[in-house]
Computed example of a mutant assay.
Amino acid sequence: MQVENPMTRPIVEKSSHWGIDACGDEILYGDVIYEFPDGEIVLEENIRQYLTENLGATRKIAE
């Protein structure tokens, strides 16, 4: 009977890369994302940029 030496097995590392958001930034597993009905995905830290640049939202202070 032949026994496989665990030291000779290739090491397979799982990538932490999940994808790219609508603003072009890398999404990693565990990141908070927003998914829009049209399929666009945006990182939480890019949501304000996405709303203003892509959807034409205007940031204002209620007065």
Rank of each mutant, 00 (worst) to 15 (best):
T58F: 01
T8S: 14
G39H: 08
I41H: 04
G39E: 01
I47Q: 00
Y29T: 04
E13I: 08
P10M: 12
K60G: 07
K60L: 11
P10S: 12
V12A: 15
I47A: 00
P10Y: 07
G24L: 06
E40M: 10
T52G: 03
S16P: 02
Y50C: 13
E40Y: 06
D38G: 09
A57T: 01
T58Q: 15
L28R: 03
G39M: 12
M1E: 08
D31G: 05
K60F: 10
A62F: 06
G30A: 03
R59Q: 14
E13M: 07
N46M: 11
D31F: 00
S15E: 09
K14S: 10
L55C: 11
A22C: 02
G30T: 07
I20A: 03
G24E: 08
L28A: 13
N46H: 15
E13K: 12
A22P: 05
A22G: 04
G39L: 00
Q2I: 10
S15H: 10
N5H: 04
E4H: 14
E35G: 06
I47E: 01
V3S: 05
V42F: 02
P10C: 08
G56Y: 05
M7W: 14
E13R: 11
D38Q: 03
E44T: 05
Q49L: 11
D21Y: 00
Y50E: 04
G39W: 04
G56P: 05
A62P: 06
G39Q: 02
K60Q: 07
Y29G: 05
T52M: 10
S15M: 11
D21R: 02
M1W: 05
A22Q: 10
S16D: 15
R9D: 09
Q2P: 13
S16F: 10
S15G: 09
P37F: 00
K14L: 13
I33W: 02
P10R: 05
I47N: 00
D25W: 05
E45R: 07
A22R: 05
S15L: 02
M7S: 15
I27H: 08
F36E: 12
R48Y: 05
V32H: 13
E40F: 10
D21P: 01
E44G: 09
Y34D: 00
L51N: 01
V12Y: 14
R48L: 12
G19A: 00
T58S: 12
